[in-house]
């Protein structure tokens, strides 16, 4: 399956006229917004207990199914393909903003699947790219018409948590300028011309989240756990707020009491309250839970 996908990504063999026809009728950015404009933001939390193999590696088939089921539910379509066709048009230039910092980083397996899905709806292979630190030098990102934002959630010693909102910091030529006050104004990144209005899908990776960390790598395996989930939505704030609730619940479970993050992750709430980027309040989020519910924490 994986071999086939890689081959497919290279050739782009399945671009079809049908997709071209359908996509020309749709403003995909508007479709993406419909899951959160106005009132509640719809967010899908999907987990699968078989996602991780015994050696900790990812079962790619399970991961792909999780993504398919998640996006289908998010957009209320009959199939995952229909959902992708709603948000990506064949003439889009698609940047998949990943995150290679870590561990944990965005799984390469997930990057591959996403690229495959984008090409599957007719986007030529040379018009889709996965990148993190090189986005400002990457022609696909420079000319992008659509972005997919994907990263793992982990605690972070500048911003409380590494979030989907924060993942766009590499689109800024001066990332440290966003650090003051625990990165309070990170949502302002989403107004940068290179990203503004382009994001069609956000995926917060909760496979082995990091709920506590210290030091230059801010990583210790003892502070990760096999949650085996994905949080999928079009509202980055709602996805981040949901992920943060899980992180905080895990900290309470681990430390035995409420344990605030050392750096307040207030950039998520501020993204709602000051930047109107999306919804952070729990009562403004329609959370749909799918799959494995053992120790789901929320």
């Amino acid at each position: 399956m994986n071999q086939t996908r890689r081959q497919f990504i290279k050739t782009g063999a399945l671009a079809t006229g049908a997709y071209l026809f359908l996509n020309s009728q749709i403003n995909s950015e508007e479709v993406a917004k419909k899951t959160y404009s106005g009132e509640k933001s719809r967010v899908v939390l999907i987990r699968d207990k078989n996602l991780l193999n015994q050696d900790g590696s990812i079962n790619v088939a399970v991961l792909e199914k999780m993504l398919d089921d998640g996006i289908k539910t998010l957009f209320k379509t009959d199939s995952a393909v229909d959902a992708w066709k709603l948000i990506i048009q064949s003439n889009d230039i698609v940047g998949i903003k990943s995150n290679v910092s870590g561990p944990p980083r965005t799984p390469i397996e997930l990057e591959d699947i996403l690229k495959f899905k984008v090409i599957s709806v007719g986007v030529p292979p040379d018009k889709v790219s996965v990148d993190d630190r090189g986005v400002l030098r990457n022609p696909v990102f420079q000319n992008s018409t659509a972005l997919i934002n994907v990263r793992p959630m982990r605690t972070h010693h500048w911003s409380g948590v590494g979030s989907l909102i924060k993942n766009y910091i590499m689109f800024s030529p001066t990332p440290p300028a966003w650090h003051p006050d625990a990165c309070a104004k990170l949502a302002g990144l989403w107004d940068l011309p290179i990203v503004k209005g382009k994001t069609r899908l956000n995926i917060l990776v909760m496979i082995t989240p990091l709920f506590h960390g210290k030091g230059p790598h801010h990583y210790s395996k003892e502070y990760t756990w096999n949650y085996q989930g994905l949080i999928i939505g079009t509202d980055p704030v709602a996805c981040d707020a949901t992920g943060l609730r899980i992180i905080m619940a895990k900290r309470k479970q681990h430390f035995g009491s409420e344990e605030p993050l050392y750096i307040p992750p207030h950039h998520i709430q501020i993204a709602q309250d000051k930047f109107n980027l999306g919804n952070a309040d729990e009562d403004r989020i329609e959370l749909i839970k799918l799959g494995w519910d053992e120790n789901i924490l929320i």
Binding site: K214, G215, P216, S220, K221, E222
Partner: peptide, 18 residues
């Protein structure tokens, strides 16, 4: 910690991560 050790001594800050 279970998988890491951090210390400082003289002008050195040392982090060993497993």
């Amino acid at each position: 910690m279970s998988n890491s050790l951090t210390f400082w001594k003289d002008k050195y800050f040392v982090v060993i991560t497993g």
